[in-house]
Simulated scan of single mutants.
Amino acid sequence: MRIAVISDIHANLEAFTAVLENMQIKNVHACVCLGDVVGYGAEPEPVLQLLWENKIPSILGNHEEAVYDDDILHYFNPQAKKTALLTRKMLKPESVERIKKWPVNIEFHGALGVHGFPPDSIHKYLFEADQGAISRMWDSVPYKLCFVGHTHNLDLVAFDGHNVITYPLLEGGWLLDNRKTIVNVGSVGQPRDGDNNAKYVIWDTKMNALTICYVPYNIQKAADKILKAGFPEINARRLY
């Protein structure tokens, strides 16, 4: 089975639509989303509706939490806080209620998906975990393969029982081995790795291999919508 793993769409309808079209070309059989569907972008409600129309399960990201939990806003910088408050106004009440029911992690085909750091952290970034934290994490996680998002960067972290090694993931194929592995799937709607294409990962469960996908989309259109909606200018500039 070929499973697309996506994350951090961030209300970018242009990027998400382009990725969905790319999935069809790549013969994807299923898709899982690792959270932060909303935030930063100008179209949170249309993106959520498209996610649900395509029956894509999602877990909770920190920007979903900010939609309904005022305590989360204390951890956001002023621009992110303004974004969260504007996003709240754009969402239907029933959409907020659906978001509240999203789980903090998801198991699929023997792998685990979480927004931040396994097994269930929404807020912890992968790069915040040192080698000791990563090796200890595997003591309590009964999975050999975990997928995360949150950082907006593509990375693979492998653990052989002794050493933790981090590899950057570039466009193309990657064959997984017997090591315990964390895959950071990057961002659909707001990559921060120096390349402005939408990014996502396809996991081939039969071959135990990854395909790293870079997808071009209409960045200018997405940026113009952000500015027109009154979001902070940085939200638009980051797309480039």
Results as ranks from 00 to 15, higher is better:
Gly35Trp: 01
Gly194Ala: 07
Leu112His: 04
Ala15Phe: 06
Arg238Val: 12
Ile219Leu: 10
Thr181Asp: 05
Ala4Glu: 08
His74Met: 12
Ala11Glu: 09
Phe16Cys: 11
Ala223Gln: 15
Met1Lys: 12
Leu175Tyr: 08
Asn208Trp: 05
Tyr240Gly: 12
Arg179Pro: 02
Asn218Trp: 03
Asp204Val: 04
Asn208Leu: 04
Asp177Lys: 14
Thr87Asn: 14
Asn218Ile: 04
Asn27Met: 07
Leu48Thr: 08
Pro93Val: 10
Val67Trp: 05
His10Trp: 09
Tyr125Phe: 13
Asn22Tyr: 00
Asn105Arg: 12
Tyr143Thr: 06
Val96Phe: 12
Tyr200Leu: 03
Arg238Phe: 13
His152Met: 02
Ile59Cys: 07
Leu210Gln: 06
His150Glu: 03
Ile219Met: 03
Glu43His: 13
Asn235Arg: 10
Pro78Met: 08
Val38Ala: 11
Lys55Gln: 14
Val96Ser: 08
Val37Phe: 02
Pro142Ile: 10
Val19Arg: 01
Leu85Ser: 08
Ser58Asn: 09
Val37Met: 13
Pro44Tyr: 03
Lys221His: 10
Met1Gln: 09
Pro119Thr: 09
Leu126Arg: 01
Lys82Gln: 14
Ala11Gly: 11
His115Glu: 07
Ile6Tyr: 05
Met1His: 12
Trp102His: 10
Leu169Thr: 10
Ile234Arg: 13
Ala15Lys: 05
Val38Cys: 11
Arg238Thr: 10
Val28His: 09
Leu112Trp: 03
Gly230Asp: 11
Ala222Asp: 04
Gly39Pro: 04
His63Thr: 09
Val141His: 01
Asp36Arg: 04
Val37Lys: 00
Gln49Asn: 14
Val104Lys: 14
Ile72Arg: 15
Phe127Asp: 00
Cys33Lys: 01
Asn54Gly: 06
Ile3Leu: 15
Glu97Arg: 13
Asp139Met: 12
Ala133Gln: 14
Ile56Trp: 05
Lys228Leu: 11
Leu48Tyr: 13
Ile106Asp: 03
Ile56Arg: 05
Arg2Gln: 10
Asp204Asn: 15
Val28Leu: 10
Gly149Lys: 00
Trp203Thr: 02
Ile234Pro: 00
Cys146Met: 04
Gly173Ile: 05
Val114Gly: 00
Gly173Val: 03
Trp52His: 12
Leu51Gln: 09
Met1Val: 12
Asp70His: 07
Gly194Pro: 09
Leu145Gly: 01
Val19His: 08
Ser7Pro: 00
Trp52Asp: 15
Gly189Asn: 07
Ile122Asn: 00
Glu53Ile: 08
Asn105Cys: 13
Lys206Glu: 15
Val67Tyr: 02
Pro232Asp: 11
Ser7Asp: 03
Cys31Met: 13
Lys55Ala: 14
Val164Lys: 00
Phe127His: 04
Gly186Ala: 07
Leu145Tyr: 07
Ala158Tyr: 04
Glu53Ala: 14
Gly186Ile: 05
Asn235Thr: 08
Leu20Gln: 10
Lys89Gly: 08
Pro103Gly: 09
Cys146Glu: 02
Phe147His: 03
Leu175Val: 13
Ser187Ile: 06
Asp139Lys: 15
Trp203Cys: 01
His152Phe: 05
Thr205Arg: 03
Gly194Arg: 06
Val141Ala: 03
Tyr40Ala: 07
Glu107Val: 15
Glu171Asp: 09
Tyr40Asp: 08
Arg238Gln: 13
Val148Glu: 01
Pro142Lys: 06
Val215Gln: 11
Thr181Asn: 02
Ala209Met: 13
His109Arg: 13
Asn153Lys: 14
Val32Asp: 02
Leu51Asp: 08
Ala129Asn: 04
Gly230Phe: 11
Ile3Met: 14
